[in-house]
Design a protein around this nucleic acid. Structure first.
Lengths: 206, 206
DNA sequence: TTCCGAATCATCCGTTCGGCTATCGATTGG
DNA sequence: CCAATCGATAGCCGAACGGATGATTCGGAA
């Protein structure tokens, strides 16, 4: 019997996953948590085999951070990230944090079951659809610096302001922008911002 | 007994709502659909009292369109929109289409139950949190034209191109942009696009 | 060790923006 | 009926942007 814990701030999703898993006789949900703190307590107390983790826990620590902490425990559970829309960087940091796999909430139940069973066996599970999406997303791979500049761009910073903030010359900023434009196949900042958000390279922040 | 039908393309969400509703003895789920077409068939065949409708049905017709069609039936069900992230315009069009209410998927189960019961009695239910959000969102109300221009802006169109496309002069475009900037409290197009997407005034399209 | 990508910087130049100010018709709502 | 709002229009001007081109440095991969 594979013992699963759910970490998600949406009651509907928790109930849904629980209902689906209880229909499988080798899977059982041993606990639920809706935030970072109770997630850690839950896992420490119950030692589940697999934790289904939402990356977007509303307020407080993010799923990636929680994942890292859970994986640092004495008997760490396998962590399977179950999420909807996240930045590529979010996903990467979750994987860096020790997540064993990643799949989307709109995946068919069978995929979910398969992923949990695989994860419990210690396999690394990237749902085919997700892997494909990641690949498609990463078609144009932006460097860290370029993403950083996109972030500033989305706040409406002018080239000079970005230059000041990053301690480089304006020429450097323009150079980066030119690379960004060509990678995103756009030719101005407004379109670059829209594309970057659409491709989830950056998050629409305030 | 209130008979409920679910329309949502996420199996997890359907299972979750079903599980939650089955715990209430005055609510019962009579059917589920994951797309526009089967939603109409389902409702025509089963005549549920309330339809829980996701606005984002993946491919095909959107939830607003389906809502309009369901409300045009002989014995129309009440439609309660249950969604996560949508444009203000989406919400408005759903309400125009005859939806009785709107609430978020991350709402606590109690709110969901209350909303369904209210809807079944013919009440219009806007979850308090949602109403507040709508109000907060609508702080700066953009005109249709302004939203239209924001859409073009997000595709990277230059002023001249927008002018041509809308059959107006460049001066008009600049005038609209100035209004947009002041309403969104930004001072350039990149920031305007980011804000507009963040505020869900426009959708990050391809 | 050689070669490439990333990051940095620079100059030139035409185009586009954004801010400002002002007008005008149409519609809508007190 | 009058005020307010919306959409459309105009000119001016300095600042910002985007394109093109080329150069240097540094570190990692081949």
């Amino acid at each position: 019997m594979i013992r699963v814990a759910l970490v998600d701030d949406h009651p509907v999703v928790r109930a849904g996953v629980r209902a689906l898993l209880e229909g499988q006789d080798d899977l059982t949900v041993v606990g639920e948590a809706s935030d970072a703190h109770s997630a850690e307590q839950l896992v420490a107390a119950l030692h589940p085999d697999v934790v289904l983790m939402d990356l977007n826990l509303g307020a407080g620590a993010g799923g990636a951070e929680v994942t890292a902490r859970l994986r640092a425990l004495a008997e760490p559970p396998y962590v399977l990230v179950l999420t909807t829309y996240d930045t590529e960087a979010d996903i990467m940091s979750a994987i860096d944090a020790g997540a064993s796999g990643y799949l989307l909430k709109d995946a068919p139940p069978e995929d979910l079951f398969r992923a949990i069973r695989g994860t419990a066996r210690g396999e690394t599970v990237l749902a085919p659809a997700v892997a494909a999406r990641l690949v498609r997303r990463s078609g144009p791979t932006l460097t860290e610096r370029e993403v950083e500049i996109l972030g500033l761009l989305a706040t409406g910073k002018a080239n000079r302001e970005m230059a000041k903030k990053l301690y480089v010359s304006e020429a450097t900023i323009k150079s980066h922008l030119a690379h960004i434009y060509s990678k995103l196949e756009v030719d101005n900042r407004a379109a670059a911002v829209a594309r970057a958000i659409e491709q989830r390279i950056i998050r629409p922040v305030s």
